[in-house]
Write a protein that binds this DNA or RNA. Structure first.
Length: 657
RNA sequence: GCUGAUGUAGCUCAGUCGGUAGAGCACUUCCUUGGUAAGGAAGAGGUCAUCGGUUCAAGUCCGAUCAUCAGCUCCA
């Protein structure tokens, strides 16, 4: 008896730094935070108790490890934004009575809520909703958790709240759950597992960013709802920083920079989603291609070329045509006078052509691995709403290779492909790379080709290679392609956004479909394994990402114009021209600005044009036989002899630094 | 493809109540010959995305189409 009372009276709380403190049983996370510091208690949004997120004021009854959750952590932001979505719903309910609410989760960059309303939300409404949200914040309404049986909740949401969407969630998604939780904040109540902020007053800055539509439960056969996106912060300052980041992203937008720097164009007269490389962009692409070709030559790849169209039978055989027919350009149909018909497909993939090259002659086990490589342009009819500059196009070029190897060579070949991909990324300045092992979803078997054993083996090989390379990875269930598991490389760019670029894929299915074989040491036919791999992925997409990553400030080896000679006055133009000629002779992409403008203006324009080297030639330089160098975004670098400068730049170019 | 927004000079954008289009930058020519992010002047540049409708009259109002943007869905 007394023991039980003793236990109830006090509990031991272990903090993240390992210290243990004693509190009265039933103390809340807030009490704990307050005992650590006033500032922490103010910043506290919620707690984790033995790793499980919980409300800040929920009583803690037992000894546990407790962590105070603040906005600085991913969990803290998730809880904050989730509560902000409830706050937005409350504001919308107050301003637009009769609105019904679907789901309103936090996302990586804020939150949204799906709303069914008679009212068509417009931009002006967002400002009014923001205002009301802040006003409700000031009311300092406490959020109250209430648990009830699912049946009671159904009654509550069909009666009191009259929200059919919540009822559907209760009766479908949650049909196996006995007890559910509701969160009340003033007049507003939402079905939610929580946890939530203790009070609406934590939300002090709000930005509603856009309105779009979504289908109820993501199902295009269900009704369309209005989705309002937003983001919220505990202070004005954090919001301002967020807005500054958005503006930075806008400044780096590859579509904007691509036009300004004359890298590529898109024109409805050519066709939607069909980018055209302008001379300056073509230089970047060609430099990247040369770089990879050079590297692949060292690694035993053999270049091939294949046509842009292929008989439709080829793609029926590979499975691409039936599987992806809705995202391909329709087949080209050819009839001759005898009524004979042939159908061709603009190639959506390079692999079938490569497989036929492989099987064009008898292969010995001694020949393997065979690594065929091609910058192969493919065409896919992406949905119109998906198109996005270079990043998502309908015609694009893959740095596509297919490696045909024996099963005993497979893991080593995957490792080689991983190594090449990592080399490419590090050369291009993507220092932060995440790796995803994209596995199949056993619950969705009809999505995939091949047998269960084949998948088991392929996934084991992929894992083994990733382990052998010592890379950190995470698993993506359901991310595999239809013919096999993948290793996908996701880079983080200079302003923290993630992009999926390179890929290495294992394929036991295509060798079967194309009846690929080699003669083993036993004199018998054996089935090779295929690796599909593309470090850049798509040249268009990669360069699009590279533009945003570098903000158009390309390293010297990639810069379309590497140097521009700027004569100070007409009197020194002949000298400047001789410098220009020397640069050209050294293979440096150089221009010269002989306009009768002042040097300040020439420099300004070269800076805006993001030209890495400005080479200034005036009377002083002519006398000494030197030039003065100004580097883009760095300023004056001093004087150099022409030959010294050329040598320095050539070194930087060949080393690709 | 779906929902919403947008489309005016090479670029960025004005254009009121429906009355035949305007700025800045860029471009061309001339003046200016200079020292590390904008020297001056003049000129040229437009079937207002396309097609149709309403109207005496359409950049402006209505409809369709095309394209772009933000999301949704998809991504071999």
């Amino acid at each position: 008896m007394s023991d039980i009372q003793e236990q109830k009276a006090s509990i031991a709380i272990t903090l993240p730094d390992g210290t243990v403190r004693t509190f009265a049983s039933g103390s809340s996370g807030f009490d704990i935070a307050l005992s650590i510091g006033k500032r922490l208690a103010e910043d506290a949004l919620a707690v984790t108790v033995n790793g499980k997120a919980s409300d800040l004021y929920a009583p803690i009854e037992h000894d546990s490890a407790v962590e105070i959750v603040t906005f600085d952590t991913p969990l803290g932001r998730d809880i904050f934004w989730h509560s902000a979505s409830h706050l937005m719903a409350q504001a919308i309910e107050e301003l637009f009575p009769g609105s019904r609410f679907g789901t309103g989760p936090a996302t990586e960059q804020g939150f949204y809520y799906d709303i069914a309303s008679e009212h068509r939300f417009r931009e002006e409404d967002l400002r009014a909703i923001e205002k009301r949200m802040l006003e409700i914040g000031k009311r300092n309404i406490l959020l109250q958790r209430e648990e009830m049986s699912r049946e009671k909740a159904v009654e509550y949401f069909s009666g009191v709240r009259n929200d059919p969407y919540k009822v559907e969630i209760l009766e479908d998604t949650l049909k196996n759950v006995d007890t559910v939780s509701l969160y009340h904040q003033g007049e507003f109540t939402d079905l939610c597992s929580g946890p939530h902020l203790p009070s609406t007053s934590k939300i002090r800055a709000v930005l509603l960013t856009n309105i779009s539509s979504s289908y109820w439960r993501g199902d295009s056969s269900r009704e369309s709802m209005q989705r309002i996106y937003g983001i919220a912060f505990p202070s004005e300052k954090l919001l301002r920083e967020h807005v500054a980041r958005l503006e930075e992203a806008k400044r780096r937008d590859h579509r904007k920079l691509g036009t300004e720097l004359e890298l590529f164009m898109l024109s409805p007269e050519i066709g939607s989603g069909l980018p055209v490389w302008l001379p300056k962009g073509a230089i970047i692409r060609s430099e990247l291609e040369s770089f990879l070709k050079e590297e692949q030559r060292k690694r035993g790849y053999m270049p091939v070329y294949t046509p842009h169209i292929g008989n439709i039978g080829l793609y029926r055989r590979s499975g691409h045509y039936p599987y992806y027919s809705e995202s391909q350009f329709p087949p080209l149909t050819y009839h001759d006078e005898d009524g004979h018909q042939e159908q061709y497909l603009l190639k959506p993939m390079n692999c079938p052509h490569h497989h036929l090259i492989y099987s064009s002659k008898l292969r010995s086990y001694r020949d393997l691995p065979i690594r065929l490589t091609e910058f192969g342009t493919v065409y896919r009819h992406e949905q119109s709403g998906e198109l996005n500059g270079l990043v998502r196009a309908r015609g694009f070029t893959q740095d596509d290779s297919h490696i045909y190897c024996r099963p005993d060579q497979l893991v080593a070949e995957i490792c080689n492909a991983i190594d090449l991909t990592q080399f490419v990324f590090s050369t291009l300045g993507f220092s932060e790379v995440q790796t995803r092992l994209s596995m199949h979803d056993p619950a969705n078997q009809e999505k995939y080709g091949g047998t269960a054993e084949v998948w088991k083996q392929a996934e084991k090989d992929v894992r083994e290679a990733a382990d052998r390379m010592g890379i950190e990875y995470f698993i993506g269930i359901g991310e595999a392609s239809f013919y096999g598991p993948k290793i996908d490389f996701i880079v983080r760019d200079a302003i923290g956004r993630k992009w999926q670029l390179g890929t290495v894929q294992v394929d036991y299915v295509m060798p079967e479909r194309f009846d690929l074989s080699y003669i083993g040491s036993d004199g018998q036919k054996h089935r090779p394994v295929v690796i599909h791999r593309a470090p850049f992925g798509s040249m268009e997409r990669f360069i699009g990402v590279l533009i945003e990553h570098t903000a158009g400030n390309f390293p010297l080896w990639l810069a379309p114009v590497q140097a521009i000679v700027l004569p100070i006055a007409e009197e020194v133009q002949d000298y400047a021209k001789s410098v220009h000629a020397a640069l050209l002779a050294a293979g440096i992409r150089a221009e010269i600005d002989t306009r009768s403008e002042k040097i300040g203006k020439k420099i300004r324009e070269a800076e805006i044009g993001k030209i890495p080297c400005m080479i200034i030639a005036g009377q002083k330089e002519r006398e000494s036989g030197e030039v003065s160098l100004r580097r883009h975004r760095q300023g004056d670098m001093g004087s150099f002899t022409v030959s010294g400068l050329v040598e320095m730049l050539r070194k930087e170019i060949t080393e690709r630094t």
